[in-house]
């Protein structure tokens, strides 16, 4: 998504629609995104710096940041590993049902989060199909613990790593690996030193996307979390809790923290993407 700089010819004059599209894009962006966000920031600003700081550093909130961010990081990490395996299997191997698996990867994206939440809870509760097995074998409870939060976030983030790694993997030419094999490298060495460096930017992008998506997730987590203060409360739930107590400024303050964080995450993602473009010598 890097931009072509330099070659700014007088194309502005050749193609029509600059003012129209610029005007409309800014108008629509303002209407849908910028004005509502401004409302959020201004409302939070009413608290004043001290009040704002106090509102966003309550112990219960700090605990929820740890859970939300920690579980999201872990979920994104798990998705990076297994997403890579899955992408590899989909691109490199042929097996019955491959097409179906490929199509279903996007399910968490298309399935409403509330539906995901109740079906994951039904599965991973200790009387559910999977929850009973896990508890029987390992003696750990899944649903209604921080582990349940992790499960929901893994589900939510699964498509992102697969979908960013898959096209890059498809595009890597076999000649590279053939050359490595001719030079006597083992498969592992080839993967480690030739393929992995090429895949890393895509992996990182997928990781960041999965992470950004997971931090704000509400619908699917709420059913499976257990919601015990300081233990299994996620940050978006606390926003709802504050609203329930008619504490609008407190809710908006937390909202601002999350929004700023999202913005930073996106900057990182864009950076990673331009890095990956440069790395692969792609010409935008």
């Amino acid at each position: 998504m890097a931009l072509t700089k330099g070659a700014a010819q007088s194309s502005r004059r050749v193609l029509p629609g600059y003012r129209l599209t610029l005007g409309y894009t800014l108008f629509y962006l303002s209407l849908i995104v910028l004005i509502p966000m401004a409302a959020l920031f201004l409302r939070a600003a009413e608290l004043g710096p001290a009040g704002f700081w106090e509102a966003i550093t309550e112990p219960r909130l700090v605990a929820s940041y740890k859970l939300s961010f920690g579980a999201s990081l872990l979920a994104a990490a798990i998705n990076s590993v297994f997403g890579l395996l899955l992408a590899w299997a989909l691109v490199r191997y042929s097996f019955p049902g491959r097409r179906i698996v490929d199509a279903l990867i996007d399910l968490p994206f298309a399935l409403p989060t509330a539906v995901a939440g109740i079906s994951l809870t039904a599965l991973y509760a200790n009387n559910g199909w999977l929850g009973s097995i896990v508890e029987g074998v390992f003696g750990i409870k899944v649903a209604f613990t921080p582990l349940g939060v992790l499960i929901a976030l893994v589900f939510i983030g699964l498509p992102f790593v697969v979908r960013t790694v898959q096209p890059v993997l498809e595009d890597i030419e076999t000649e590279l690996e053939e050359a490595a094999a001719c030079l006597g490298a083992s498969r592992w060495r080839t993967f480690r030193h030739v393929l992995l460096p090429l895949l890393t930017p895509a992996l990182l992008t997928g990781f960041a996307l999965a992470f950004a998506r997971a931090v704000g997730e509400y619908g699917s987590v709420i059913f499976i979390a257990g919601n015990i203060p300081l233990v299994s409360e996620i940050t978006p739930l606390l926003i709802i809790t504050k609203l329930e107590q008619f504490d609008y400024s407190g809710a908006t303050a937390v909202g601002v923290v999350m929004l700023v964080f999202s913005f930073l995450m996106l900057l990182v993602i864009n950076l990673l993407q331009s890095l990956s473009t440069r790395r692969l010598g792609r010409n935008p």
Partner: peptide, 10 residues
């Protein structure tokens, strides 16, 4: 308390 749901029905 093992689970503190957000609502009574939960």
């Amino acid at each position: 308390v093992l689970v503190l749901d957000s609502g009574a029905r939960g």
